[in-house]
Amino acid sequence: MGEETVEFEVDGSKLSVAIQGHGRNILYLSASLWFADDSPFAQRLTAHGRVITPTAPGFGPGVVNRRWNQVDDLAYLYLDLIDRMKLTDVVLVGASFGGWIAAQMAIKSCAAFSSITLIDPLGVKVGDRFTRDIADLYGLPDAELRKRAYVDSTVFETDIKKISDDELSRRIRSREALARYGWSPFMHDPKLLSRLRRISAPTQFIWGAQDQIVTTDYGRVYASHVPGATFRQVENAGHLPQVEQSQAVLDALVSFADAHR
């Protein structure tokens, strides 16, 4: 319904951006995990604004600069995107890996954002050096990974016969691209936690109460470093509350965005 795709080329990487809906700008940075599909949630968001959903270079079939290997490459790319599209008063939403990118953008500049919602974001280190804060995504068998990610893992199709070629290649590319940007230090930037002090836009954290990829304890420490941030726990949801409890997340997101226009 009125979906438009825009493509940018920056520093040898191609960025594909889907735009759909009308009203305020909502920049949705998806979870980008091979064991999740949160595109239906992005679709639901279009009832509440003009939803802008980029597919990060490497996660789609487009070309990626071989030297890109940090989340900052994507944070700067999306700040470029905001400049090029002349976006203002943006509702910035990021989930999981997308939440990490959103945080890396926000510490650089919040000028374009009216509010920020982070849903179970990755990206910081809170425990000691022997503690694995973030589940070892590449060390867990698929079934165990799904068990940790979902309260009800049957919501995610795993029967290879029922998975289209497009979806299969999306999963394989996501698994690879996520490693490109987050292999080591594993899915975090050691300096991000202390830099969260720079976030000046109103920020809320939404967290699945049963998340076993990054727990609510991790989330609360994360949130405590963002000035004035609120923390909302969503019951009966794992790492992807926007998939498992999409209405509750949608309500929380929209009311927070409305309160901070």
């Binding site: 590449y138 867990l140 068998p141 698929d142 299969l168 290649s169 394989i172 996520l178 490693a179």
Partner: peptide, 18 residues
């Protein structure tokens, strides 16, 4: 080899993994 250490991300091409 314990799964999934036999298929590290990016080791095989997308086509081969498919």
């Amino acid at each position: 080899v314990a799964d999934p250490f036999n298929k590290p991300p990016g080791y095989f091409s997308v086509d081969a993994a498919m």
